[in-house]
Every structure is written in C-alpha cells, then in structure tokens.
Design a protein around this nucleic acid. Structure first.
Length: 601
RNA sequence: GGGAUUGUAGCUCAACUGGACAGAGCGACGGUUUCCUAAACCGUAGGUUCCGGGUUCGAUUCCCGGCAGUCCCA
C-alpha cells in the first residue's frame, strides 16, 4: 500500500465522510524532518475550526500501528511546526519497497498509458535545407517526450511534419534546371540544393522580374501535378529525408511517419468548405477568416486572399486525418514558443469542428547565438552536423587523454577496440551527443537558450557525461564484484556500448539499508516512477533529468565515502544490491532521455 | 496599442504546482588519489527570489498594479 493511501485512510477515519482526495505524502524536504512529509492537516484547520496540530494529532491517532496491523510502515511519526506530519519509515519497510521496485520491469514505471494511443509531432525541419542548431530543441525534447510516453505504456505515433511544400519549390526547380552543373545534378545532395536555392532566389530578386515569374510558373505547374516537376520535387524530398535520417541516426531518433505538409494538400479545400458551411469562416478583405475575437484570440486566416492556404488550414486538415486514422487520446505538438497564438487559434477551431482528442502544444524557448536570432542573415546557422562533430571531437580528446595520462605510459590498459577500430569513436559519440542532448533536456523547455559551444558541450558538473560516468563506475564496480552481466549481444556489434534496453544487472542478496547515505539514496530511488510520471504530466523531460542528476549526486557521494567491495560480506552484498538498482534506474532514466549509457568510460 | 512568456547567487539554472532555513552546476577560495574509475568527492564564500500592494497560519509559487527582456498579433 502506498504511503499516500495509508495517510489518506487515516484522514478518512479521523473525519468520516469528507473528501480527502487531495491528500499527498511527499518526500521530506530535509532529512531532519524524517523521510516523508504530509502538509495537508494544515489545510483542514479552517474547515474543521480546529488547531492544525490537533487535526494532525487526530489523524496520527488513526494511523495503523504495527501491533494491530503488520503493514504499518512507520518507525516514527511526529507532528512538527504548525502541523506538519513528519514520517520516518522503518528499515524493514524501506528494504521491502526496494525489493519490490527491483523486481518490477522498467524500474516500476506505471503502465498508465496501456491501451491509449497518442500522436507526437516534432522536429519538422524544412526540406532541401540542412538541419542546424535551431532544430535541436524540437528534435531532442520531442524525442524524450516520445520515449517517456512509450515507457508509460502508450502506443505512440511519432510523426515528422516536414516542411515539404511551398513557394521555395518553384525557386528550386527553376534553379535546378538552369543553375546547377550536370555533375551537381547527378550527385544531388542537400548542400547542392541549398546552393541551388541561394543562387535562384538571388536571381528572383532581379529588377526585370523575369526569373521570378518563371519560378512562379514552375510552382504552379508543380501544384497542378505536372509529372516532371512532381518527380523533381519527389527527388528533392527523398534526398532531404535521407539527410535528416543521417542526423536522426546520430541522435537516436526514429519516426513512425514522415508526413509533410504536402500530404494534406488534397484535403485542405474540404476543410475550408466545411468551415464555411458551419458558418465559422467568413470573407474578409478577400481572405477567408475565422473570427476568434470572442475568445480573445484575434482572427485566424484559413484561406489567403490569393486563394492559397496557410498553416492553420494544413494543421486543421492534418488533425482531422490523424483523428480519422488513429483516433488518438491526445496529440502533442513540440514547436517553438512563437507559435503559441497559432496553436491556440486552431485548437479552438478544431474543437468547434468536433475534434475531441486532447490537443497539447509544448512550446519551447527560442535559441539565439550571442544574443542574436539564429538566421541566414546573421550567418550564425551552425549546422547540426558541425555541432555533433565538434561534440565528438571534444569528448574524443578527453577519452584519449584519460587512456594516456601524463608521462605517456598508460596506467590502465587501453580498452580493447572493436574489430573496425572505432571503439573510441563510438564512445566519443555516446558522450558527446549525450552532452548535447542533456544540456537541452536539463532545462525547462520554455527557457530561452543563448547557444554557446561551452554550454552545449559541458562535460562536467550537471552534464550528460556526469551521469554517464556514474553509470560506468557502477558497472565497473559490479563487474569487479562478479555480478555484472554483459547484455547478450544486444549492443549490436559494439561490446563497449552496453546500452541495449531491457538489460539489467542485479546485486546478490537482499537489501539492507543502514547508513544515512544509503538511506537517502534508497529513498531517492523509490521516487523514480513518480519522476517519470511528473515529467510526462508536465511535458517536461527536465523533471526527469533533474531527478537523475540528484540521484547520481547521492550515489556519487555514497560511492566516494562508503567502501563497498572491501566491506565484510553481508554489508558488501547489500550495498552491491543497492548499487545495481541505482544502475538500472539510471540506465532506464537516461534511456528515456535518449542518452546512451556506455558500460566503460 | 493588445496578448504570450520570462525575471531567483557573479554566470547558467532548480525548487515535485502554496510548505519548514530558497537548492544545484559553473566560476572563486581551500581540502581529498599507496583505497571500488578524480569527467569524482568534501568544505568555505556568495540571496531584498525585479519593485509595490493583496490573499493566506505560511508566497519564488496565487491575485492586482508597475518596471525590464524576448516573442506573437495589429
């Protein structure tokens, strides 16, 4: 029985017939207040016209005692301050909870999403362009939310809503035919497409307007289904997706579908027609708009004065199709905070059109570079590829320097390389990419970020590598103790990256928490499932990242100050058991953030 | 002009949705490796939580009014 349920039952017994659904037991804010606390007696003092301490005392009197009910988890219950309930749990209860947690799959993450379906829409880069640092946030935050919801048992459809339609394709098609060399056309790549766009767009600005008109004509042909232009467009998209997938592979990101804006071209007119029939959309200055003044959301255009559609239209068409095809419980959109009004507008319209799925916008703050917006004009579009290469380079330098300390003689034998000789490369990627992801995930998404190399690639303190290092040390410890098992060839050809999901290593013997630092770590480990749930409810991977960092700190402190392998047998086994549980929690948690956990660093 | 969002230590950020003395990392200063991985650990210094009201037993958190940054709409 959960502690919250026990306390709630005591409240109900003390004050029958009242609603105590709000009662919660939380971890104590400080060890001197016990292990857990409940502050809800204070809230009732006014209602019952009683001194809050008396309310608390009455509740305490209704708690089960160990004599009557063997289930009592409390070693001590105190009423403190104005009426706080400070709860100290018994060692037996704590050990039993640890045993339960240890036995559960996924480290006790509740399967509250079983049977429910959700769609997550994230990353969504524009075709024919390389991904840059501005794309990190949606990709990394979206993927972590994706993984977190999957871990809770939800069926998740991850959709990449590519920017694959629009005026740029007229410019690209015209440029491709007339400005690229034959060799460039034969070896078409995203960089060539970028070059093509820049050249063609420049010509489109020429005074006479001839090139511009010609681009427009190509666009119209494309929109009308001209086979040649359509084939060319398809080629551009395929090349773009291949390039994106190269980045996603590095980041460990996978999508179920890649439905760009173009996917909804055919259904947009129908959506607009229905909006008109429902009386929601009306003509205004040549455009068709939905007036949302009543909701204080301004006016949303659904068809521009030139007859073209915009994001509101395509988002509405898209949501209708998703509802029809998947019937999801909710749809989550991970985009930057500038689009908040846009999402509020069309969520509102979708509701009026009968969409009942819960629509959630997860906004994240803008990324800037040295205080300036990231844009082509500012020339600060650092390519994602470049960032990842730098991340790898920096961690590789550290990896190698650790293997060859001052003096040039290796203190520890260099770790055996893989057959292809890329052992350190793979390690540097796990660490470098992990650092980049963690930097983003450890902050509340809404925070604006001013990009800097040093921040993005932090390797010390509250950083990805700190957590990976803690994991590597616990693996090493368990290996030395003989309780560590390498994953059964699951790490797919790379024995040094034991990051395959589901693998566990178990300590031997039972839990036996004794010292204060063990107890603090143990109590913290029990909070893991709750941290995952909170992260999901708030759509903030940072909640989980923060939990994992705190947990690793408690572990590092415990590890540094308590001998484990050198302790006598019973203490050693109990501590190893706790270490193994920590290792599982850390690995599972980092896995939810999309961060690899090498067994050796 | 209307709206969104942010404002916490020198810097970057937390604070479990209203709880006890506001915590971490970086940076600064000092300590810890014949000992399980020093990407670590331990300690010291550092705060008018932007300002002013209000609600509450209790406010970084909620409400009102300002100020400042960023963004969106017109």
């Amino acid at each position: 029985m959960e502690l919250t349920d026990i306390i709630k039952a005591a409240f109900e017994k003390a004050y029958p017939g009242e609603d105590f659904s709000f009662v919660r037991v939380l971890p104590a804010t400080d060890p001197k207040f016990g292990d857990y606390q409940c502050n809800d007696a204070l809230k009732l003092s006014k209602k019952f016209r009683a001194n809050p301490r008396e309310v608390a005392a009455k509740v305490v009197a209704c708690l089960p005692t160990s004599d009557v009910d063997v289930a009592s988890p409390f070693a001590k219950v105190e009423i403190a301050g104005p009426g706080f309930l400070n709860l100290t749990v018994s060692t037996d209860w704590l050990n039993a909870q640890l045993t339960t947690l240890n036995a559960q799959s996924k480290c006790g993450i509740p399967q509250s999403g079983a049977g429910k379906k959700i769609v997550i829409d994230y990353s969504s880069p524009n075709a024919a362009k390389q991904m840059h640092i501005g794309h990190i946030r949606s990709t990394v935050i979206g993927n972590a939310i994706d993984r977190i919801f999957r871990s809770l048992g939800y069926e998740v459809i991850a959709d990449n809503h590519l920017g694959d339609w629009g005026t740029q394709f007229g410019i690209l098609i015209k440029g491709y035919r007339e400005l690229l060399t034959q060799e460039e056309r034969d070896n078409l790549s995203v960089p060539y497409l970028e070059k093509c766009y820049v050249l063609s767009a420049a010509k489109a600005k020429e005074e006479d307007g001839v090139w511009k008109e010609s681009c427009k004509a190509e666009l119209v042909k494309l929109q009308q289904g001209d086979p040649d232009n359509l084939a060319l467009w398809r080629k551009f998209i395929d090349i773009s997706i291949a390039e994106f997938n190269r980045m996603y592979a590095k980041l460990g990101v996978k999508f179920d579908t890649y439905r760009g804006e173009s996917y909804y071209n055919d259904t947009m007119p129908g959506v607009v027609k229905r909006l008109q029939e429902m009386g929601l959309a009306v003509e205004s200055e040549g455009a068709l708009v939905v007036n949302l003044e009543e909701e204080k959301l301004g006016v949303a255009i659904v068809r521009k004065s030139d007859g073209g559609f915009n994001y509101t239209t395509s988002d509405l068409a898209c949501v209708e199709m998703r509802v029809k095809e998947y019937d999801p419980e909710r749809i989550i959109y991970v985009t930057d905070a500038r689009q908040q009004l846009h999402f509020k507008q069309w969520f509102n319209i979708a509701g009026k059109m009968g969409v009942t799925a819960k629509l959630v916008h997860v906004p994240f703050g803008l990324m800037s570079f040295q205080g300036k917006a990231i844009s082509t004009r500012e020339g600060n579009l650092i390519k994602l590829d470049e960032l990842l290469a730098e991340a790898k380079k920096r961690s590789l330098a550290i990896v190698e320097s650790r293997q060859q300390p001052a003096g040039g003689v290796a203190v520890t034998a260099p770790v055996a390389e893989d057959s292809d000789g890329t052992g350190n490369d793979a390690l540097a990627e796990a660490i470098g990419y992990g650092a980049v992801k963690y930097t983003d995930l450890s902050h509340d998404p809404i925070t604006d970020i001013d990009f800097s190399w040093d921040k993005a690639l932090a390797l010390e303190g509250n950083s990805g590598p700190y957590l990976q290092y803690a994991y590597a040390r616990v693996c090493s410890l368990l290996e030395k103790a003989g309780t560590y098992r390498e994953p059964p060839s699951a790490a797919a050809g790379n024995s040094r990256l034991a990051s395959a999901a589901g693998e566990t290593h178990r300590g031997t013997g039972a839990f036996a928490v004794t010292t204060p630092s063990e107890k603090r770590l143990a109590l913290q480990l029990l909070e893991f499932p709750g941290a995952v749930v909170r992260a999901a409810e708030a759509y903030k991977p940072s909640v989980l990242a923060d939990y994992l960092f705190q947990t690793a700190q408690l572990y590092s402190s415990f590890y540094q100050n308590s001998p484990i392998l050198k302790s006598e047998e019973s203490v050693k086994n109990a501590r190893l058991h706790l270490c193994a549980l920590f290792g599982n929690v850390l690995k599972t948690g980092l896995g939810l953030l999309g961060i690899e956990t090498p067994a050796h660093i």
